[in-house]
Design a protein around this nucleic acid. Structure first.
Lengths: 185, 185
DNA sequence: TAGTAGACAGAACGGTTGGTCTACTGTCAG
DNA sequence: CTGACAGTAGACCAACCGTTCTGTCTACTA
C-alpha cells in the first residue's frame, strides 16, 4: 500500500484541481472535503485561502511543462518552438480544458494585493525568458521582441480556445510562429 | 437639467462599470447602491443577477466600437485592420484597463449554464465575421483562416496586457497582423 | 512514562451572498 | 376620483463565505 501523502500535499492537489475546474472562488469547504483534511490544517500550512491559492500557482510547474515539451522535440530551436504550439493544440482541444489557470486567476482576483498576482507575473516572466533564450540560440534578430510575439500568440491561443470552441486557434497561431522564427539576423 | 435615465439604464450602467472593475462577482448590493435603484427593480427588469450580467454583455456595443475604429481609418482594408491594433495599444496602456470583459466573464463563470456564455460566444462570432469580411474585401487568400489568426492576436494582446504590464503587446501583434494581411490570393 | 507536535472533528463566529416580501409613494390614464 | 402601475425603502431569508475556536486522538521523542 502506498503511503498516503500528507495533508499539505493533499490540500495542494485538491486546490489545484478545484480552483481550475471551478475557478478560484471555490469554497474552502469544497477543498477541505476533497482533500479529506481538517479545517485547521489549511490555516496551519498556508495561513489563509489566499496563501493556498498563491502556493498552487507557485508550485504548479507549468514552466517545467514547457521545458519538457521543447526538450522532447530535439535540438533544433525551430522544432522546439513549434512543438509548443503542437502541444497547445492538444491541450486546448481536451474536453477538460478551461483556459489558462494563470490568466484566469489574474482576471478573477481583482484585489491588487492578492499574493497570487506576483506568482502570475513570475510565471509569465519566466516563460518570456525561456522563449527569449530559445530565439537567441536560433539566431533571431530580436530575441526579446520575438518572445513578446510568441507570448502574445500563446496567450491568444489559450484565451481564444475558451471563447470559440472548435476553432483550433493553435493551428492558426503555429503558422504565425513560423513567421516569428523566420526573422533571422 | 437633463432627465435622469430610468432605473433600467442606471442598473445597466452601474453593472457595466462594476462587473468590469471588480469582476462579475461583485455583489448585488454594490450595483444597487451605485445605480441608486431599489432592489426590486433589478429583479423586475432582469429576473436575476445572471440576467443582468448577460444583458450587460449583450448591450455592450464592443462590436460597434471595432466598426467605428475601422471606419475612422478610411477605406483601405489594410489600414482598417491595422487601426484595430493601434487602438488596442491605446486601450491596453490605459490605467483603467483590466482585460477583456468577455474573456474575463467566460473564465470567471464556471457554471456552463450561465446565460452570459451565449453572449460571449455571440460577440466573438460577430467579431470573426467582421474580420472575415474585411479580409475578403482585401483579397485575402483565406479570409476565414486569416480572421482566426487576427482573433488570436487580438485575444492574445488583451490577455497578455493584463499579466505583463508595460509589455506593449499590441505593437508586437501589429507586426504579425501585417503578415496576415500580406497573404494575398 | 510524560511531553510534545501534528492531524483530526466539528461548532461557532460575524459578515455577505442572491433573492423574496410587504408596504409606501408618485404618476398618469380613464 | 379611481385604479393601475412603476418605483422606492427596507426588513427578511436561507445559504454560504473565510476564519477562529475548543477539544480529542495518534505518533514520535526524551
Amino acid at each position: 500500500m502506498t503511503t498516503r501523502p500528507g495533508p499539505r500535499e493533499r490540500l495542494l492537489d485538491a486546490a489545484r484541481e478545484l480552483t481550475y475546474s471551478q475557478g478560484v472562488h471555490v469554497g474552502v469547504d469544497a477543498i477541505l472535503k476533497q482533500a479529506d483534511v481538517a479545517r485547521r490544517s489549511l490555516y496551519q500550512h498556508f495561513g489563509s485561502k489566499d496563501g493556498l491559492v498563491a502556493e498552487v500557482l507557485r508550485s504548479d510547474g507549468a514552466l517545467d511543462g514547457y521545458r519538457r515539451v521543447m526538450d522532447d522535440a530535439g535540438d533544433d530551436p525551430r522544432d522546439r518552438v513549434l512543438a509548443v504550439f503542437d502541444e497547445l493544440d492538444v491541450i486546448t482541444t481536451r474536453p477538460s480544458f478551461h483556459g489558462c489557470r494563470y490568466t484566469a486567476a489574474e482576471l478573477a482576483l481583482t484585489d491588487s494585493g492578492h499574493p497570487a498576482h506576483a506568482e502570475v507575473r513570475a510565471f509569465k516572466e519566466g516563460l518570456h525568458r525561456l522563449l527569449t533564450a530559445e530565439l537567441a540560440r536560433h539566431g533571431h534578430r530580436d530575441p526579446e521582441g520575438g518572445a513578446d510575439q510568441l507570448l502574445v500568440l500563446i496567450d491568444g491561443v489559450l484565451a481564444h480556445a475558451v471563447t470559440r470552441p472548435g476553432a483550433r486557434p493553435a493551428l492558426a497561431a503555429r503558422a504565425l510562429a513560423e513567421v516569428v522564427l523566420a526573422s533571422q539576423s
